[in-house]
Amino acid sequence: MRYREFWDLVDDVFGRAYGRSIAGDQVLEQLGGRTAARAIEEGVEPRAVWHALCDAMQVPDAERWGSDPHRQAPPR
């Protein structure tokens, strides 16, 4: 997953305003107490950040990949 894809998924799954808010505010224990935005800035693999954010927000696996029917779920 690329950084652009991460942010596209944030916008698609959570909505742009809410998604950007939780990415910047929600502290994620899976990421060492960092926010998703901070983890991305610090070079953490976007796929790991995405799964940590979805886990914290209890997003079901079936809904994690947004509305694009061609998007493939990358392996964990």
Score class of each variant (00 low, 15 high):
residue 1 M to P: 09
residue 1 M to W: 00
residue 3 Y to W: 03
residue 4 R to F: 08
residue 5 E to F: 00
residue 5 E to L: 11
residue 5 E to N: 13
residue 8 D to T: 12
residue 9 L to H: 00
residue 11 D to A: 00
residue 11 D to C: 04
residue 12 D to M: 07
residue 12 D to R: 03
residue 14 F to S: 04
residue 15 G to K: 03
residue 15 G to S: 06
residue 16 R to M: 15
residue 17 A to G: 12
residue 17 A to D: 14
residue 17 A to F: 11
residue 17 A to I: 15
residue 18 Y to P: 00
residue 18 Y to N: 00
residue 19 G to L: 09
residue 19 G to H: 06
residue 20 R to H: 09
residue 22 I to A: 02
residue 22 I to N: 08
residue 24 G to P: 05
residue 27 V to H: 13
residue 28 L to T: 04
residue 28 L to W: 11
residue 29 E to V: 14
residue 31 L to Y: 08
residue 31 L to V: 12
residue 31 L to T: 07
residue 34 R to E: 14
residue 35 T to L: 11
residue 35 T to Y: 03
residue 36 A to W: 05
residue 37 A to L: 15
residue 37 A to F: 03
residue 38 R to D: 13
residue 38 R to I: 01
residue 38 R to T: 13
residue 38 R to Y: 08
residue 39 A to F: 06
residue 39 A to D: 06
residue 39 A to W: 05
residue 40 I to S: 11
residue 41 E to A: 14
residue 41 E to D: 15
residue 42 E to N: 06
residue 42 E to L: 03
residue 42 E to V: 07
residue 43 G to N: 01
residue 43 G to P: 13
residue 45 E to W: 15
residue 46 P to R: 01
residue 46 P to Q: 02
residue 46 P to C: 11
residue 48 A to K: 15
residue 50 W to S: 05
residue 51 H to P: 07
residue 51 H to L: 15
residue 53 L to V: 01
residue 54 C to P: 11
residue 55 D to E: 14
residue 56 A to V: 12
residue 56 A to N: 06
residue 56 A to K: 01
residue 56 A to P: 04
residue 58 Q to H: 13
residue 59 V to Q: 02
residue 60 P to M: 03
residue 61 D to M: 01
residue 62 A to Y: 13
residue 62 A to P: 09
residue 67 S to C: 02
residue 67 S to A: 09
residue 68 D to L: 14
residue 69 P to M: 11
residue 69 P to L: 06
residue 69 P to H: 06
residue 70 H to E: 12
residue 71 R to T: 05
residue 71 R to V: 04
residue 71 R to K: 00
residue 72 Q to D: 04
residue 72 Q to I: 13
residue 72 Q to K: 12
residue 73 A to S: 09
residue 75 P to G: 14
residue 75 P to I: 14
